[in-house]
């Protein structure tokens, strides 16, 4: 029988195929290619979910028994699944396929990164501090939130490109929805992501209180999640200011995404700190 790691490597490949079809669909405005992209995306996401469930079973088989959200490999694999789910929901709801290429590419890159030998895909036992149901809610909230904010970033980039173009309605840029639609989509994705990272911040605080006796300690990972949160709160308020629609909001969305990336990957590079994920 296949193990979860090999399922995940097939899934990586299928996300790559999805990105390819979405790109063809976009460039040539081909509905068929777009549909193939969606099909590949659905298969990849479902496969990713199957890999997740299988790995969960495997943790029991090796005698540890915990939800597979405990190290970088597992979190990257969960991120790509969340990406697939959030994107497919957006596609279904908004009937927009052009960001499919970005979503599939992001999932592909996350999984390709996860498959590097240095990441280590072994199943590891859970240290006592991580054995908490709050941790599960915390991680799930964050990764769905991050998926939404990653998509928001992609939409913002499209927005900036389209907005800067001399003739935004011709060529492949013409296949992108109007800047107004992109602007609203960014907002919808940001509020969804913001809600989830708030939930992640809150459950993280409750968990930290249970594990270490304090709900907030300004440790770098905590602080960086708060920084990210401040940036997206800025974005929501900037919308209320006259003249801050569109371009400047897109810049804040890009800045927020940079903070997300740093919170996820960069914090481990900071001095004097041991991080689990």
């Amino acid at each position: 029988m296949m193990d979860s790691t090999s399922i995940i490597s097939y899934v990586t490949f299928i996300f790559g195929i999805a990105a390819f079809f979405y790109a063809i669909g976009w460039i040539f405005k081909s509905k068929t290619a777009g549909r193939l992209g969606t099909a590949a995306m659905v298969i990849a996401t479902a496969g990713n979910a199957a890999g997740f469930v299988l790995r969960w079973v495997e943790t029991y088989q090796v005698g540890y028994g915990h939800i597979p959200l405990s190290n970088l490999y597992e979190s990257l694999a969960f991120f790509s699944m969340a990406m697939g789910v959030v994107y497919l929901f957006v596609e279904y709801r908004y009937k927009i396929r052009v960001i499919g290429m970005f979503a599939a590419l992001a999932a592909f890159l996350a999984l390709a990164y996860a498959s590097l030998p240095s990441i280590g895909s072994q199943i590891q036992p859970l240290m006592p501090a991580l054995q908490s149901n709050w941790l599960i809610v915390h991680v799930i909230s964050y990764f769905f939130g991050y998926a939404a904010l990653t998509l928001a970033f992609c939409v913002s980039i499209l927005f900036l490109i389209k907005n800067a173009s001399q003739n935004p309605d011709s060529g492949i840029l013409g296949h992108i929805p109007s800047v107004k639609v992109l602007d609203e989509l960014t907002y919808q994705l940001v509020i969804f992501g913001f809600l989830l990272i708030t939930l992640g911040l809150i459950t993280g605080a409750v968990w930290a209180e249970q594990a270490w006796g304090r709900y907030w300690g300004w440790d770098p990972k905590e602080t960086w999640s708060l920084i990210t949160w401040f940036i997206y709160a800025t974005l929501l308020h900037a919308r209320l200011m006259r003249g801050w629609e569109g371009k400047r909001l897109a810049y804040i969305s890009v800045l927020g995404f940079a903070a997300v990336l740093f919170t996820y990957f960069g914090v481990n590079l900071l001095p004097g700190l041991h991080s689990y994920l």
């Binding site: 300004w218 770098p220 602080t223 960086w224 708060l226 920084i227 401040f230 940036i231 709160a233 800025t234 308020h237 900037a238 209320l240 200011m241 903070a259 914090v267 900071l270 001095p271 004097g272």
Partner: peptide, 24 residues
């Protein structure tokens, strides 16, 4: 003004970075 809150939120975000770069 919301402008002040935007400025404050961004300032808080930026200054918070310092404490993560310099060990406390």
């Amino acid at each position: 003004s919301v402008k002040l809150s935007v400025i404050l939120l961004l300032t808080l975000a930026l200054t918070s970075v310092i404490g993560t770069l310099i060990p406390q």
